[in-house]
């Protein structure tokens, strides 16, 4: 369990990092941030990058900023940054709630928000947040910068539409309405394990009725996504056990469940049903 040989580059500026990445990307160069996913994969030799562009000393990548519309999260912001609310908006509380489900404490001290998105594990909590809230990913390379919508970003199990010379420099999450409600629930076998299914919901109440419902499901399909059928089951309804059950049922039916040696499609749908309903229940507490 020793990685294959590689060259580690330690740029100090973003420009320098992008230059090195442009040069080494064709030779299987990869960006190293927190290393909590990449390094174990290298130890298993499932990945054998020839070059690592280590961004841990690049200036300015650890910033969290907001302009009243979006929360901008830099490439080196660690999971643990979200333990406390980072913005006076329901989004801050939402991120705090989700953060404590991300792996274990030591991993949260090192792993990064953007790294988690670039790795695109189907079970990633942050990928679910990005998909549910329609985040915008800012990719930078020597060729310039471009914004990628969440729905266009995830391309399959551990696959994204980032080009090999692009660094995921920033993720922009839209702030929530001041009166937005949210709920999160995930199922795993042990504390800190990858979610076997997870759900994130947000909505606002207008005259006691649900509006603008977002129901995101992760860990159940190759990519996290919003489930339109579940959202439709909620919009215009008052929050109630019946409405929540209907939405959960709709989500359970809508997913194309991933199967593995221990998890049948039927069981995965059971879990989706449970996590969606529980996330909705949490939203009322």
């Amino acid at each position: 369990m020793k990685p294959a040989a590689f060259v580690r580059h330690v740029p100090k500026t973003l420009d320098e990092a992008l230059k090195i990445l442009a040069r080494v990307a064709p030779q299987d160069g990869r960006v190293l941030a927190g290393g909590q996913s990449l390094v174990p994969i290298m130890a298993f030799r499932l990945a054998k990058p020839a070059h690592l562009v280590d961004i841990n000393e690049v200036e300015g990548l650890d910033k969290i900023a907001h302009d009243g519309k979006t929360l901008d999260i830099g490439a080196r912001v660690r999971h643990a940054a979200f333990h406390k609310s980072v913005v006076d908006n329901p989004l801050g509380a939402l991120l705090s709630e989700v953060a404590r489900h991300v792996a274990h404490y030591p991993i949260r001290m090192r792993g990064t928000f953007c790294g988690s998105l670039a790795h695109a594990d189907p079970a990633s909590e942050w990928c679910l947040v990005a998909a549910t809230l329609d985040a915008t990913m800012v990719a930078k390379s020597m060729r310039g910068a471009r914004a990628i919508a969440a729905k266009d970003f995830f391309a399959g199990i551990m696959a994204t539409t980032l080009a090999e010379d692009e660094l995921l420099a920033e993720v922009r999450l839209p702030l929530l309405a001041r009166d937005a409600r949210f709920g999160f629930n995930e199922f795993n076998r042990r504390a800190g394990d990858f979610a076997m299914s997870a759900a994130l919901v947000t909505y606002t109440l207008q005259d006691g009725k649900i509006g603008g419902a977002r129901v995101g499901v992760g860990g159940a399909e190759p990519c996290p996504r919003r489930i339109a059928e579940a959202e439709a089951a909620l919009n215009g309804k008052a929050p109630s056990d019946a409405a929540f059950r209907a939405a959960a049922e709709a989500a359970a039916h809508a997913v194309e469940p991933l199967e593995d040696h221990q998890t049948t499609g039927e069981y995965r749908r059971d879990l989706v049903r449970a996590v969606v309903r529980r996330a909705l229940e949490q939203s009322t507490q």
Partner: peptide, 16 residues
Amino acid sequence: ILTANLADYMPPTARE
């Protein structure tokens, strides 16, 4: 073997 790492083979943690 489908359970060849400690994510798939699951000893309990203190939390369990």
